[in-house]
Design a binder for these strands. Structure first.
Lengths: 367, 367
DNA sequence: GCGTATTACGCAACAGCGTTGCTATTCTAG
DNA sequence: CTAGAATAGCAACGCTGTTGCGTAATACGC
């Protein structure tokens, strides 16, 4: 049963609304927020007072615009809060230190051995987090986010069957890491973390989006209606295993003609253009099904040929979607490049704590 | 920019929570709600007092269970609120009167001429609504919901290009109907209305679902994370125009090998089993992409062969989705049968007013 | 230089939310 | 008939955003 809302929820909701504005504007003032949120100016003053006390925001002097008392303006304090994000890929562990503004402040990449074990990952994770945590005051470090290949269970924090990783079946990574690191930990699919990064940086107009990642498999992270969508079993986005060719070649997943196998075969024979066209068909399929207006193409196997993939997808969106004047979607690559997954994992942690609320705050998984 | 929350929102949120419980239980008491929502028993008393005053709920005596003062129990008053739902199909207009419990109290079906015009529909709609509105007190009629084939714009209430209806391009049906009927009106895609009906009746465990409708086209209504998902341009669910056969026959939408054209060709040659298998592939595609755990198969062209479609889909879900023990989804037909769209349109109106809130209440479109 | 209109800020009182403390009610058990 | 237990609800409380209004700081007209 859903949880009821109380005054704490009300406060956090409105505070988060103002933090969200602060995050994406240079400076802000009382009147602008009042107009945008529907709060009274007086209520905005109270919110700002709370954020000042928490150190999330600081005064930035006054601005004069003609007659009247000058407006007091404020700005976000980016280094008031930090989170560390980890991108666990098949051969590398990428860690970033991310501030409240969504900027990557430091990053480290360490190689992982083939078929690394959970113990090995935890060791490397602990080392890396210790190194990055030196970059900020301990009390300002909110937590650690881990983005990893699925399938995994976000709600339980358990890696179910990480794709092509032998030792990763039903590993309760979130709780193991939380205990080892002594910090709150969030576990998410890599693609979901990636779309969180884009959403956190691009603001509230980025309400419905997918991030498609081509990197040892093809997956999609979904951002629907202003928040990450993970699905009933927190396993949404297995985009690569949509059948696009009923009589196509058999895929590892057991079905025939999956997008992934068709795409990979084209890449295997060196035909990047054909691979890109197949992915573009998948993109349009997804647009038809869930009608997002932002598509982000990412992943280590895609970005080296970004132009080909972008071109094919943009072309397909322009020509294959009916009523283009009305149904539009932009196709881009991530601004953060290869850091997007790790950064998104970090922003997921920040988002959980300081992002806009969609319902009464759930109890977080603490160490 | 998002709207801030105030005390009214808080109250409505919690009231809606209790109404939701009342809707799906026979009788309820203070302690049960307190335990389920996290509210204190005293707060629940206040909520119930408000609902009593509004007439949404009534006392149902007391229940004795052993020692102590007997528990006062309450129950929903189904006929305290009504909504009328309309299902505008290509040849028929189906209207239902629906109560707060989600029961269909009356229904009428009238034929529509081929290529009917907006004016003709408004006339028939007005006649039908007048007839059904006699079935309840005027002040208890909350509004009218219209479910119709897309593409249409839910947010603006405008029919963009209703599939195979010549006179329906950029028709502001919601506002036209609201003015004509003198009632609040909601316009939604038929498939979305359908999934709302299922969700409204099946309660909060039905959080992630699709309703697939085969009826002059193939579409899907999405219910994601506990509310209807319509997409960036409120046009999500164009499920039939997902390509499943890259080199397949050309579809009316301009692409090749859409699910719809492949399916329709199988049906045209009388091969229902093959058509059902194609749809099943699409169902699994959708499960892979958005990981819902409920699939509802509906539509006038499907229900006569419900067994074949259900069997194929259930079989595919069982055999084609990896890790079935973990990733499960049930496949059913709608309990309301052919009334599901009209009933869902009505429940959409009730849901808007008395359903669980996902954010601060938006101003409704009044006449 | 000075008064005035204008704009913004913030204290104080307020209504209404869920919470807490406590009392009254109504039952069973003995 | 009394004691104990479970429930209901009044009243006071802390906190939310809101409202009313006084104060501060500026530009502009004279």
């Amino acid at each position: 049963m859903d949880k009821a809302a109380d005054l704490d929820y009300l406060r956090d909701y409105n505070d988060a609304l103002v933090v969200a504005i602060a995050r994406r504007t240079d400076v802000f003032d009382r009147a602008t927020i009042a107009a945008g949120t529907g709060l009274t100016p007086q209520a905005v003053s109270k919110v700002i007072a709370r954020l000042l006390a928490a150190g999330l925001v600081e005064p930035d002097g006054v601005r004069r615009h003609g007659v009247g008392k000058p407006t007091s303006v404020y700005r976000l304090v980016p280094d008031s809060r930090y989170a560390i994000g980890a991108h666990v890929a098949r051969r590398t562990l990428r860690l970033v230190l991310c501030d409240l503004a969504g900027e990557v402040r430091q990053s480290v990449v360490t190689p992982l051995p083939g078929d690394f074990t959970p113990v090995r990952l935890l060791d490397d994770l602990a080392d890396g987090v210790a190194a990055l945590a030196g970059g900020c005051k301990a009390e300002r470090l909110v937590g650690v986010g881990i983005g990893m290949v699925g399938p995994l269970d976000h709600a339980e924090g358990v890696v179910r069957d990480a794709h092509r990783l032998r030792h990763w079946h039903d590993v309760p990574l979130r709780d193991l890491a939380a205990e080892r690191l002594g910090l709150p930990v969030l576990l998410d699919k890599d693609v979901t973390a990636g779309v969180v990064a884009e959403a956190w940086r691009r603001g509230p107009k980025f309400r419905d989006a997918v991030l498609i990642m081509v990197e040892s498999g093809i997956g999609a992270g979904l951002w629907l209606g202003g928040s990450a969508y993970r699905g009933a079993h927190t396993n949404a986005g297995e985009f690569g295993h949509m059948v696009v060719q009923l009589d196509g070649p058999r895929c590892v997943c057991g079905r025939n003609g999956c997008l992934e196998i068709v795409h990979d075969q084209a890449r295997a024979r060196g035909d990047v253009a054909a691979a890109a066209r197949v992915l573009a068909v998948g993109v349009v399929n997804l647009l038809q099904a869930i009608d997002v207006d932002h598509v982000v193409l990412a992943g280590a196997d895609l970005l080296p040929h970004a132009d080909a993939y972008l071109g094919a997808a943009q072309d397909a969106v322009r020509t294959e979607v009916p009523r283009v004047d009305w149904l539009t979607a932009d196709v881009t690559t991530p601004a953060l490049g290869v850091d997007v997954i790790a950064a998104g994992a970090a922003m997921g942690v920040l988002n959980e704590r300081y992002g806009p609320l969609t319902g009464p705050r759930q109890a977080a998984a603490h160490p």
